[in-house]
Design a protein around this nucleic acid. Structure first.
Lengths: 147, 147
DNA sequence: TTACCTGCAAAAGGTTTGCAGGCTA
DNA sequence: TAGCCTGCAAACCTTTTGCAGGTAA
């Protein structure tokens, strides 16, 4: 990432925090900078280690809380909502998933159109493609009712 | 699932086990039947609870081992390879992911074609769509070299 | 000044591992 | 019979929670 776009993103971050009424603490800034620095979809412990040199007193719990806050406010996002539990699929036919980000319910969808989606050349360039699925992240009707 | 297709799948299961030189133990059969019974992409503990009435002595570790074995032999599959660690994405532009199922490396892909994929009507029917991403599950070149 | 935020520590939750004994093929 | 499979228990790893003190606005 070049300097201009980093500065731009940092300004945007400050603006987003103001709008969301989030304090811009040194810890939050450090975590956000670590995220900008990263290029590999970091896990909380990677962020923690990356922040540690410039912030030796930060705690693991704080990193978790900050990341969750950022996610809640649309500043960053989880790569998958299904990170906290192993889920198995017995169906072998090619299909796709609707996933409720709140209750983690998973619904299958079959769609010929989706099955035929264009596979970008970079996918097969260096990798052995096993399969692909489209994940539709939603809030399901039950969870909407609860809010 | 109707009886015919259940019987068919069970026969297929037996055949797959033979080909993979897997013993067909009562425990494995019970777990497989529980998977067929399920319609909600069960987690290991859901499978465990589902098997328990007909198999009160089965252990949690066995369920995990059986599910892993089934996955390794293509009998079932994980809904996401990223279940064992939270991963964050700082990029807000719409994009998609190449995921190595071995080392869990994640690579971004941008593609206008993928962004425009047809969203099945059932997705928006009852749910509030937040976003969607295509997950390309691969074995990356580094991991292939290791094997 | 006040509500929000951090840091510590402990707990919780999910998954993996090692090993001894038992069962399938 | 031999090697694979199970069940138990403990360990491990990640994530969450409660609370007391500190800090941003």
């Amino acid at each position: 990432m070049n300097l201009d776009s980093r500065t731009e993103l940092l300004n945007e971050f400050v603006e987003t925090c103001r709008q969301a009424e989030l304090s811009i603490t040194p810890q939050r800034l450090a975590v956000y900078k670590a995220l900008l620095r990263s290029d590999n979809h970091p896990s909380p412990d990677m962020i923690y280690k990356s922040v540690l040199p410039e912030f030796p007193t930060i705690s693991f719990a704080t990193v978790y809380k900050i990341l969750e806050t950022f996610d809640q406010n649309g500043i960053i996002s989880k790569v998958t909502a299904l990170h906290n539990k192993l889920r198995y699929d017995p169906i072998k036919e090619h299909h796709h998933h609707i996933i409720c980000v709140k209750c983690k319910k998973i619904i299958d969808i079959k769609s010929d159109d989706l099955d035929k989606l264009p596979i970008p050349s970079e996918v097969k360039e260096d990798n052995e493609l096993i399969d692909f699925t489209v994940h539709f992240n939603v809030i399901c009707s039950e969870c909407r009712k609860k809010d």
